[in-house]
C-alpha cells in the first residue's frame, strides 16, 4: 500500500521516505519474481518427472 507509513518512516525526511519506498518497491518486485521462478521450476520439474514414468 503506497501510503502506508512504517515506524521507521516516521523519522524520515520526505527525501528519505521516498528513497525508503523505492528500495522497498525494488525488494517487493524481487520477491515477486523469485516466487514466480520457484513456481515455474516446480511446474517444469513435475512435468519432466511425470513424463519419465
Amino acid at each position: 500500500m503506497r501510503g502506508a507509513v512504517t515506524m521507521d518512516e516516521k523519522h524520515y525526511t520526505p527525501e528519505q521516505a521516498a528513497e525508503f519506498r523505492r528500495r522497498r518497491r525494488g525488494g517487493n518486485i524481487a520477491i515477486f519474481f523469485t516466487l514466480l521462478a520457484v513456481c515455474v521450476i516446480f511446474f517444469a520439474m513435475t512435468v519432466v518427472k511425470m513424463g519419465q514414468h
Binding site: I41, A44, V47, V48, Q52
Partner: peptide, 11 residues
C-alpha cells in the same frame, strides 16, 4: 540428464 533437470541442478 534431461535439460530441464540439468538446468535445475546447475541452479
Amino acid at each position: 540428464l534431461h535439460p530441464v533437470l540439468a538446468a535445475i541442478a546447475v541452479l
